[in-house]
Design a protein around this nucleic acid. Sequence first.
DNA 1: CCTTGTCCCGACCGATCGTTCGGTTACTCT
DNA 2: AGAGTAACCGAACGATCGGTCGGGACAAGG
Lengths: 195, 195
Amino acid sequence: MTTAKRDTYTPETLLSVAVQVFNERGYDGTSMEHLSKAAGISKSSIYHHVSGKEELLRRAVSRALDGLFAILDEEHARVGRPVDRLEHVVRRMVEVLIGELPYVTLLLRVRGNTATERWALERRRDFDHRVAELLKAAAADGDVRGDVEVRLATRLVFGMINSIVEWYRPDPRGAGEREVSEAVVRLVFAGLKQG
Amino acid sequence: MTTAKRDTYTPETLLSVAVQVFNERGYDGTSMEHLSKAAGISKSSIYHHVSGKEELLRRAVSRALDGLFAILDEEHARVGRPVDRLEHVVRRMVEVLIGELPYVTLLLRVRGNTATERWALERRRDFDHRVAELLKAAAADGDVRGDVEVRLATRLVFGMINSIVEWYRPDPRGAGEREVSEAVVRLVFAGLKQG
DNA sequence: CCTTGTCCCGACCGATCGTTCGGTTACTCT
DNA sequence: AGAGTAACCGAACGATCGGTCGGGACAAGG
């Protein structure tokens, strides 16, 4: 609180604007001109805050990845029966995904054209493997079905969870979040069939 | 068979090359230079076969959409109990998605920057609504759980199915296809829990 | 007052974008 | 052989790309 800042951009506030535009137009489809219009400052001014377009992407996907990996450090993800730890991770993934929606959205659309994008893809794979091991342990306990391969099931469950970014739009009262995470947990573990 | 064609490009063969590159680099991330390198002809020669970059996109997503809509016209999708028709549509969606993998992949990544992309998004929404009505009818019959909203369940199921394009790679023997469609049907209707 | 540093700007850079054009090659048909 | 044409090419178009540069406006500290 030593400095009384001017009412201006910081790398963080600029990032939130940039991520929104990236998600609307796609990273490749977004020019620095688009960003400057959306931020209300000139194109060259953006370079006062960040080193360039790719740094904005790196900051965004880092934030998303940090949020996801933090789940694995939570107590309920580390101790207990694997099937219960898996349920906790699934539920928390939905919550993080919704809480950091624009950043995770951008992360999930990265294709691998640049070094930054390939680094993001690698960290995503790491996370996937960690969850796959959890599912494998739950299968070894006989708590989840054994007639679907672990790797395949992991991918399909991730697919369902990650697809949330394609349609979820924030609810000002934050009401829909619990409904979504509950629906995902029910469908993943019990399926559509009448229980 | 009246014409013995020269060994050269047609709009269709050129399309298959273009779609592959689009999926690797993203549509916006792909330049006509990239396409010419991949196709082995000069940039200007591409314009002898198609009107431009956007026509390639339009042809690709049209092929994907035609494949999906054709499912709804099949007999098992039109007659019978809604829950059985739903299972058939789910299974066939996986098959079409795998059979037309690169085209459906491109369709699912369209963002809406151009008129062609917005048209594709609109047709996708139409298809989604058709399937949502099927699930609604199955819920009215009491054949699928009623504690998850129909619209929400539809989106999550579509998310799981559509995510296949993110990791499935064609098996020369076509072996994995049945395993995937079976796994999807099991997870969607019965869930992960040991049955 | 003047200096210092933050924040921002218009003008401009070389490179690349999707597309066009005039012309050449190579095959088909008569 | 000669005409016609589908397939192709190199060069260049105006526009836009991500990024650079020198300098102006403005607040804080002396």
